[in-house]
Amino acid sequence: MKTIAALLMLAAPMAAQAQETGSLVRFVACPTYRDADSGRKSGCWLADDRATGRRWDVSLSPYKPDWNFAVLVEGRVTDAKPDACGAPVLDPVRTSRLLDQPCVRHMLPAEGYPGRRYKLQGRYIDPLSVPRAVPPGPYAERTFPVYFEFDNDFLIYQYDDYLLDKAVTWIRAAKPKKLVVTGFAATVPEMVSGQRIAERPEVARERAETIAETLRRLVEVPVEVKWQAGSQPTAEPDADRLPGQSQRRAEIRALF
């Protein structure tokens, strides 16, 4: 808990002023779609932080908004020019859809902004026809985290599939005796944009079971499921330095 509090305190004073590169912003907002057009998947997602009055470009989130619902935005300020979408860029960034908070759909015209031409990059997997490189041993107990959007257990495309593909490739080579999947939920309420937000405790179990079911389809190692309400942030690199993201996770522990 201390860690979250510390991180939040760090973030809070900065939110009031012009935010420095690398600082964390976290807010709830109705997203706006900007109809920029540089081909497929090139449109922009914008979100305004009501507390600071600033508009951010949140398009780089791996899981993008639905214009009918509010999003929980978590991201880090960059010094990238606002050229693509017309707002300063958060990167890394997450936009969790809050399906119980309806929004009026709003679309801006491109207004001269090009958006971002789509490029296959970052966390994506190869087709099955491409053999995976066997990760070198020696193999010993190891934990693989996978991450989720706020309050849900949905496996994020080009994020979790990538993390799972790596984990599974290792598991197939390492042949552990069993896998223990533990789901976590960030259940401690926090104030964000004047709202108390907390994940449901049940989502810890949902996450564990979703990942366990997926693992049972991919490897022939026995899978045990555990869950735990309450979650500490971690410094795992695949959570992209976003404390909230690191809390919303499941861990796959391979035991020998």
Binding site: R40, K41, G43, P65, D66
Partner: peptide, 13 residues
């Protein structure tokens, strides 16, 4: 457009 996170809307062909 749901539950997968391409966005709603998403521009494509």
């Amino acid at each position: 457009n749901s539950r997968i996170g391409f966005g709603n809307p998403v521009r494509n062909s």
